[in-house]
Design a protein around this nucleic acid. Structure first.
Ligand SMILES: [Mn+2]
Ligand SMILES: [Mn+2]
Length: 564
DNA sequence: ACCCCACACTCAGTG
DNA sequence: GATCCGTAAG
DNA sequence: CACTGAGTGTGGCTTACGGAT
């Protein structure tokens, strides 16, 4: 199987008024050509038929697919590049891609008609309402009057001369899109955004057989999990959402999604006070926080000796610092509740403090940055962006190593297994090679060159506008490579939890870079009134402190009377 | 990059 | 009107 | 009272525009 450079993706240039149709064809042909075996025979046949319809008809269908919802008024489907909507639509109706005159409920009716039209054409239904009633008011009124009754538009509003059509094929193309992107958050707009330069992606070579899913069942499970999460956020009862969940998938990355979904439903159950269900879900979930939530729920629902001894067991075998902290907090409360002496203590290392009173209120980080900044000691508001950014610049070849399965379409900002626990291990050698460069005399130039080469390419670790050449140069001049390596290695220990929590500000002291004693930089976490150091921030700060990196927490208050 | 990270805010419980 | 929001589209 | 832990809500290429309030 030969490697394919992603640049070879046919680009629909924006002068083409049917650019979206070209992109749609590219996507569909890609999926049928490479993942066709994951489609049903009937699906392949109808896609084939669709692509042979007249161009204006396919174009109109794509326009509808890219728009929100499934219902459209034909008067609102008005495209100069398509011409007559009626002409374009009839083949779509004949082939059942689109359904004419669908029956709709009052909610849909209110979404499709303007306030003015509702008043003018539903006057008999709105007798009791004042003429000034708002749209939500009308919607409630109609809902109370008709409940879930469905009618055709011409039945709801006989005097309104407009037609309604309904997409019949959303599910099929949602599936096709999912197979292409491997997620539900990207859609056809990825093509045009790339073309416009708002998004750029690292071109990683991958083979023709690379794809997100290996079986149709995996796609089905993904879609079901997505439906479950949507139902949950739409307010459906957690028990009901749980009942509709598929069986636990065998593939690793789908299992993570599955566990995450269980966890979210569990949170929903907690919110509803359904502790039994929450416990059941957390026990099945392998989400990193499922364990600590289990004990939080036990603390509330069953604060007895059994729970307490289970908690002690969990504490004893807990590996993650974040989990240990959370469990230890519960242990202190639960033991007190049971009349026992706490067995753990929260040992929060005292951090160096700065107290400041400044005129405000104003954005806290910027205020402190401005106050501390001096020409020979500039301050930058970087949060996680500096260390994550330098890390990604140095380790770029590892992050974008063309491992099998990691990349499968040209619109990926990162490898598909970035969140997986064995992400680093699978790339151990490349990462080591990258980190070893920090011992070479040329690493600064290499990082600066990488910045220049890759500027603008989407990467989850990098916020490009922040990473100015000036900032990177200063950072490389002032932060010793040993510190960089220590921080990068900590990042690699647990990327998902260590990529955040870094201090807000960095201050550089370029004049000290030759000195043996004075420090070349310091890190400052800013806390405004009412804000506190978070656990993961504390862990980064303690780590730095132990390594002799100058860190402090700046507590800011506003000078009385002054405003800015 | 699978609505996340940091912030600002609220609320309740505790010494 | 002025303003804010959601949606469409390049 | 101050302090702590827990929970919640908010944002997202850019530009243009119709619609609601
Ligand atoms: Mn911050
Ligand atoms: Mn802060």
């Amino acid at each position: 199987m030969s490697d394919l450079a992603p640049d070879t993706l046919p680009r629909a240039d924006l002068d083409d008024p049917l650019y979206y149709l070209r992109n749609f064809r590219t996507l569909v042909e890609w999926v049928v050509g490479r993942h066709g075996d994951l489609l049903l025979e009937s699906e392949r046949r109808s896609i084939d038929q669709l692509l042979r319809l007249p161009t204006p008809s396919i174009a109109l269908l794509v326009r509808m697919l890219m728009r929100r919802g499934e219902l459209f008024r034909t008067s609102r489907l008005d495209y100069s590049e398509i011409g007559s909507t009626d002409d374009a639509i009839s083949p779509l109706i004949e082939q059942r891609w689109v359904k004419p005159n669908p029956e709709i409920d009052t909610d849909a009716l209110c979404r499709l008609l303007t306030l003015r039209e509702l008043r003018d054409f539903l006057d008999s239904d709105l007798k009791g309402l004042p003429a000034s009633a708002t749209k939500t008011r009308i919607q409630e009124h109609l809902q109370a009057l008709h409940a879930d009754a469905v009618h055709r538009l011409d039945q709801w509003a006989p005097a309104l001369s407009d037609k309604l059509v309904q997409l019949n094929c959303d599910a099929l193309f949602t599936r096709v899109q999912l197979m292409f992107f491997g997620n539900m958050s990207q859609d056809l707009s990825a093509f045009v955004l790339t073309e416009l330069g708002y998004k750029q992606f690292e071109p990683v070579p991958f083979t023709r057989d690379s794809r997100a899913f290996t079986s149709r069942q995996e796609v089905d499970i993904y879609l079901q999990l997505h439906l479950a999460r949507e139902a949950l956020s739409a307010g459906e009862p957690p028990a009901q959402v749980y009942a509709q969940l598929p069986d636990s998938p065998s593939s690793n990355w789908l299992e993570r999604r599955y566990s995450r979904t269980l966890f979210e439903i569990g949170r929903g159950a907690e919110r509803e006070g359904d502790f039994d269900l929450a416990l059941k879900l957390y026990r099945q979930s392998r989400h990193v926080e499922a364990n600590q939530r289990t004990f939080r729920v036990l603390e509330l629902s069953k604060p007895d000796r059994d729970s307490y001894s289970a908690l002690l067991d969990a504490l004893a075998c807990s590996k993650r610092p974040a989990e240990q902290t959370a469990l230890s907090r519960i242990e202190r409360r639960l033991s007190r509740q049971l009349g026992l002496t706490p067995k753990t203590r929260l040992t929060r290392t005292r951090l160096p403090q700065i107290k400041l009173a400044l005129p405000g209120p104003a954005p806290v980080e910027a205020s402190v940055a401005q106050h501390l900044s001096r020409p020979d000691a500039p301050v930058y508001y970087v949060e996680n962006g500096l260390i994550n950014g330098l890390f990604a610049l140095l380790c770029w070849p590892a992050l974008y190593a063309p491992l099998p399965g990691a990349f499968f379409n040209p619109f990926q900002a990162a490898a598909s297994d970035l969140a997986s626990p064995d992400f680093v291990q699978r790339r151990q050698e490349v990462f080591e090679r990258a980190l070893n460069a920090l011992h070479s005399p040329t690493y600064k130039d290499e990082i600066l060159k990488r910045r220049a080469d890759k500027y603008g390419i989407a990467c989850p670790f990098i916020n490009w506008p922040l990473l100015s050449e000036e900032l990177v140069s200063l950072a490389l001049a002032c932060i010793p490579p040993a510190d960089l390596e220590a921080m990068f290695r900590r990042l690699l220990e647990d990327i998902p939890s260590h990529r955040s929590g870094l201090p807000d500000l960095v201050q550089f002291f370029p004049a000290n870079t030759q000195s043996r004693t004075a420090t070349g930089y310091r890190l400052i976490e800013v806390k405004g009134p009412g804000d506190r150091v978070q656990d993961h921030q504390q862990r980064w700060l303690e780590f730095c402190l132990e390594r002799g990196i100058d860190v402090s927490v700046c507590y800011l208050s506003w000078e009385p009377g002054a405003t800015s």
